[in-house]
Amino acid sequence: MAARGRGAAVRWSAVGALVAALVALPSLLGALPATDTGVSAAGLRAAVLASDEVGFSGYAVSAGGLSLPVTDQLTSVADLFSDRTSMRVWWRGPADHRVDVLTATGETGTHRDALGTWTWEYESATARRTVPGPLELPAPPDLLPSTLGARLLSEASADELSRVGARRVAGRDGLGLRVVPAARASSVERVDVWVDGDSGLPLQVEVFAKGSARAALDTRFLDLELAVPDAEVTAFSPPESAGLREDGGFDLVAAARQITGPALPLTLAGLDRRPVEGLPRGLAVYGRGVTLLAVVPAPGRLAGELRRALHASPGAVVDELGVRASVGPLGLMVVDRPGGRPYVLTGTVTTEALAAAAADMPELGGRP
């Protein structure tokens, strides 16, 4: 009996050691030295921009340290950038993919097709359909390192790019590409993108605010398979028993259509206005690449909620222009003028840039 007991203990010890090794495997792979190549910064950027049709599946995690002001209408956006978001992704292309956000209480799936997006909430068995617009609030697919990395690199100029070595990400060699924005208004110190040398897919993206050594946003793949998923995995049709509802989110474009008065200027805070098809005169986006500034008309309720939240933010500035604050690299400002309509300035710009933009804004009219 004693001999058999000792044999069982040895066998279970071996099983325990194997389990421990499997659990530690991802961190061990990440600790392995990465192999760099001689690819230039321009060449690596070109590889990223050519990777949008690469099919893959995997598991990604985004960690945001931005404690954004929360409002009833923008809670989901605040959650994306202030919490840890775990995502399972199947990607056949920009117009055919699925991203499931996994939480302790369940899952929410985002299915993109050629005509729009289905959002499926598993626990409530509720489906919501949305169609693409000229300007949309961030959604989980926008936080994937592959999506975010490509967008942030898409408009970077050659003098803003440099190589920064290599590291292991998701068991693959990630080649480092750094963006240091040139715009004086930018609140971003740098963006580091770690790129798979074989496919050009960004494996990890880190965004650093000026004056901070810790990333304000870090999104990375923990597991990645480079193969096109089956079409039935990304496709979605609501079950007959599902509840259907229209998108009840804050419609930026609808609010902007109510604006009257002079057109928004061509330049704000030293940033040029972007030509975005379909935007009404009361809404505009300025800047390029990493440095962006949006002018958003705010209905009375939203303006009031944001105003109260900003007042409570550390370091908030309140003056005759309104109330403004910075949360990491993100600046937010509610502008109020006597007799005018409130509006919000927000983007990856400094609070000084927000104040300069507010001072140059024309009077906005329209229904509050």
Rank of each mutant, 00 (worst) to 15 (best):
S154E: 12
R163S: 11
A9Y: 07
P280V: 05
V23T: 06
Y59W: 13
L306C: 11
P202S: 05
G200S: 09
R92K: 12
E277I: 06
D113G: 03
R190Q: 15
A63V: 15
L152F: 11
V344L: 14
L22Y: 09
R84V: 15
V180L: 10
D173Q: 03
W12G: 06
L152E: 03
G109Y: 05
V15C: 14
L364G: 00
T105C: 09
T85C: 07
Y122D: 15
R112E: 13
V334L: 13
L102F: 07
W90Q: 14
D319M: 13
A256M: 11
G55H: 04
D96K: 01
A235L: 04
L152N: 00
P239E: 13
A183S: 09
L201G: 04
A104S: 14
G328F: 06
A284D: 05
L364E: 08
L68S: 04
V101I: 08
W120V: 10
V54D: 02
P342C: 09
P181V: 05
P239D: 14
S212L: 11
S154V: 09
V99D: 03
P202Q: 05
G289T: 02
L332D: 05
L143F: 07
F250Y: 15
P132W: 06
L148R: 00
T219W: 07
D336T: 12
G5S: 12
G347Q: 00
R214S: 10
P202E: 07
D100A: 12
L226T: 09
P132C: 08
R337W: 14
G347T: 00
L302E: 13
G116F: 05
A34I: 04
L224M: 01
W118Q: 09
T126Q: 06
A47N: 01
V318Q: 10
R257C: 07
T348N: 02
R367F: 14
G248E: 13
L332E: 09
